[in-house]
Design a protein around this nucleic acid. Sequence first.
DNA 1: GTGATTGCAAATCTTTTGCACTAAA
DNA 2: TTTAGTGCAAAAGATTTGCAATCAC
Lengths: 140, 140
Amino acid sequence: MELTPSCPDLLGRLRAVGLRPTRQRLALARLLFDAGDRHVTAEHLHGQALASAIRVSLATVYNTLHQFTAAGLLREVVVEPGRSYFDTNIDDHHHFFCESIGTLQDIPGQGVVVSGLPLPPPGTEIRRVEVIVRIGPESR
Amino acid sequence: MELTPSCPDLLGRLRAVGLRPTRQRLALARLLFDAGDRHVTAEHLHGQALASAIRVSLATVYNTLHQFTAAGLLREVVVEPGRSYFDTNIDDHHHFFCESIGTLQDIPGQGVVVSGLPLPPPGTEIRRVEVIVRIGPESR
DNA sequence: GTGATTGCAAATCTTTTGCACTAAA
DNA sequence: TTTAGTGCAAAAGATTTGCAATCAC
């Protein structure tokens, strides 16, 4: 594939994290990062790739999502048993999650303060504090 | 099975939530609730049942865990993709989760305050605020 | 060319389901 | 009895892996 000049930033971002900018990685990166903040599942992204006439196998989508996550380009969000979401927003932030629809929505991290946490167990340190606000349709 | 008089509370608890106190439900309830706060996976609980010479199928363990959860006797905690933990502590509280070991640890809810949350999206209301503190071995 | 990456299909792992059988009431 | 609950094995999902073919460099 010709590396189109329309995505120099993506190409550079992949190179910067040591991932060879292959056809499918670039195509997936474009789907992921060219449309603002997104929360996708592997299945979802694969469907979108196929719809965009990008030939990628589901296995490659999984591999790519995990490589991007390991490289710090994505964040994995676990809110539902048996399904992983990947978040293109890697800033410190939190989530609303609607169980009835299965939808994630970002909560900017700046405003939220979690206070009163005890010290982590001896020998461990805090990696990240994650707040998940589970929401549902209004009762009435 | 003879309903032993040693577990009148469990029997009553099951009846109270409309679950017929069968041999395996009682046995699993005893494993779950007779040992203080616990975080178990289905696989884990099944192994423990077998080790205690309780004949239960894994399918029944799954069904029972979900029935208990639906009945409010347990809480499901989702922290790892592809694996559910069930928590015998149903009070309002949060968790430390160590990814390297896969261990959950309770954080009492009283002390922790989450402030600065935005309003939930229109038409929805907050069901629960969950804080997961991801921890790992100390860097140095 | 050479080694990383991909596709595919098969394997794996967790969880759910269908149905004949068993047990609680 | 009557109906809910169970076991088993098979099915269903999500995710991973092995290996030959392919592509970036």
